[in-house]
């Protein structure tokens, strides 16, 4: 029978420190996905993932069983991402935002390209469009769209009202629609 997150935490705190690696293996894909989509850079996302699990291990005794482990570790990961995003140069972000807000220029006539290349193009533009969103909208979209969390869970993780989560989701989707509209026309 598979151990629950809470059982693994109890074992880890009880001295079986290797048990924590079970949690790492179980959640690393989710945390990496979250950090990559929040930060947009592979190497930085890998560092943030490592940092998240290290922080979780060090603070495991502070984890209260009332909340789900997933909510707790998502919160740690988001805090780490937000710290890294705040540390980035404002100048670089503003240039990126200016470029993204004007829409996207497809690099070539995509009708002539293979499906694979076309998908890569879409992925690239989605990635850039997502990066150009304000972090508070992006984190809601990422948690909902890629992590499949319920709105109430997102509200719990972020510590904000449910209605705020839904408003951010709506605004975020509207912004993504604007940014991706030209790409859709091109393909």
């Amino acid at each position: 029978m598979e151990l629950s997150d809470t059982q693994i935490i109890e074992r880890t705190l009880g001295g079986d420190t290797d048990a924590f690696n079970l949690l790492v293996r179980r959640w690393e894909r989710h945390i990496y996905g979250l950090t990559l989509r929040m930060l947009g850079r592979d190497d930085e996302a890998k560092d943030a993932t490592q940092e998240t699990f290290l922080s979780a291990y060090r603070n495991l005794s502070k984890f209260r069983g009332e909340a789900k482990f997933s909510s707790w570790i998502y919160r740690i990961a988001l805090n780490i991402c937000n710290t890294r995003l705040r540390g980035r140069s404002r100048f670089v972000i503003s240039i990126e935002e200016q470029r993204e807000e004007s829409g996207f220029e497809p690099v070539a006539d995509t009708n002539d390209l293979g499906d694979n290349i076309q998908q890569q193009q879409i992925t690239l533009h989605v990635r850039r469009a997502l990066q150009s969103l304000p972090a508070e909208m992006r984190q809601v979209i990422v948690m909902k769209e890629y992590e499949g969390l319920k709105f109430s869970e997102i509200a719990d993780i972020l510590g904000i009202p449910l209605s705020t989560v839904k408003t951010r989701m709506y605004t975020g989707l509207s912004e993504m629609r604007k940014r991706l509209e030209r790409l859709r026309e091109a393909i």
Binding site: V24, A45, T123, V126, R177, R184
Partner: peptide
């Protein structure tokens, strides 16, 4: 309808690789 299309595009971005996460779990 536009939101459905945006969701479809968002789902195109899937992650292939996975980082090797190592946490030094020495006994406290």
């Amino acid at each position: 309808e536009a939101f459905h299309r945006v969701r479809g595009m968002l789902q195109q971005w899937q992650i292939d690789d996975l980082p090797v996460v190592r946490v030094e779990t020495t006994a406290r």
